[in-house]
Design a protein around this nucleic acid. Sequence first.
DNA 1: GTATGTTTTATTGTATACAATTTATATCTC
DNA 2: GAGATATAAATTGTATACAATAAAACATAC
Lengths: 235, 235
Amino acid sequence: MESKPHTSRRSEQMGDLIEERIVTGVYPPGMRLDETELASGFGVSRTPIREALIQLSSAGLVEIRPRRGAIVAEIGPHRLCEMFEVMAELEAMCGRLAARRITGPEQLTLAAAHQACEDARDANDPDTYYRLNEQFHHLIYAASHNGFLEGQAAALHRRLRPYRRLQLRVRDRMSSSFAEHAGIVEAILAEDGELAAERLRGHVVVQGERFADLVASLPMLGDLGRSQVKPVSKA
Amino acid sequence: MESKPHTSRRSEQMGDLIEERIVTGVYPPGMRLDETELASGFGVSRTPIREALIQLSSAGLVEIRPRRGAIVAEIGPHRLCEMFEVMAELEAMCGRLAARRITGPEQLTLAAAHQACEDARDANDPDTYYRLNEQFHHLIYAASHNGFLEGQAAALHRRLRPYRRLQLRVRDRMSSSFAEHAGIVEAILAEDGELAAERLRGHVVVQGERFADLVASLPMLGDLGRSQVKPVSKA
DNA sequence: GTATGTTTTATTGTATACAATTTATATCTC
DNA sequence: GAGATATAAATTGTATACAATAAAACATAC
């Protein structure tokens, strides 16, 4: 919907590139982000890199320690649960408002998106489901008809992306996710705001709790915040 | 609580300075922020100014249009209402969690802060009340024991500061605000999360609605988004 | 006099150079 | 050899110089 006006700002491009590598795990949490190294790596000067890092710092993806350089933000399990808790509430709010304010065309689009998710589930295609699931949720954000809320929800959703991606692989999550979606769509189309809110809250909270389980089973992630990942420094 | 580690980064200092001038209205919405002008004005080079502007842009206080410079973000009445709507929900969430998680010492601190507000109301001192009111709300954020939520709530609270400041002056708002606070404290101390949430939501929404009224009465603010404030450019 | 096209000017975006501080290394003492 | 101190290296923060683009001013044609 928001057509970005072909920014032509290198800072933005660098920011997107670095963000991509962070959320995809190419730059793992705790990794040192050397300005000079990144600059030469991307074939630009340090200036756009610095500006990108500042922006990513504001978004919470990297942490800048004065005079000590930037590292990929290490979001510990505890903080992550907190973030899921807030995400659940934001989604609940979106659902409550959407139930009251959704338009006819939006209802059709939402139903179609839900249908598409069903197809992906039937095909047992987690990657496609993952993508369609994102669209589904974004439609609810938009249907809240609160642009600011939509932006906040989308931003947090995006920030939690890498962690949500992990837990979609777990046993049967795709099916239960779709089942929950059905209830959410039903509540919204019935214009029952409180029910939609409650179901969305549950839907997201489950993700957070499942994630907590996942964390407990992964020692690698278990001691996040302790581990210091070394920079990739290659000659 | 979060002691900032004496950053020594000029960018941060510049950011704080510019933000201060934005929220106090020295730089009104729509004003062009000329990098060179700001740089010479603050006695630094353009670099720290640019970095500060990027940061403020991420925070939503300024808007950077590629190759066209930065302006103080113009938050129209509509967007503002949306923001108050989200603020209400965030505060409600803080209250709900606080009622369940608040500790003994925090209860005492909250009661004391409430008492202090009462004193300011009795003294009919809006400025002091304004300050104490902020502390009161921050205590509730903290009592949610969700650090991420606390941060989000504080950030939005801060961003809405200039607009809240306006409407505290209106007739009797201080008294009704305090009365609402009493109900909120009662609900939290009674550990009734839903009641606390409901009352906080109402408390903030009232602010938003009152603000909408205020907007309607102020022609200057009424056509925000249309008016183009000229830069201060002095020789 | 208005509209359009060109030139000029001003401002942003990027690169590089320099300064300041931190981290690593080496040396010296015990 | 361990620890501490001093020196050296590397990296961040700031300033300045240059390039690219958009706004403004001007001139010209109609």
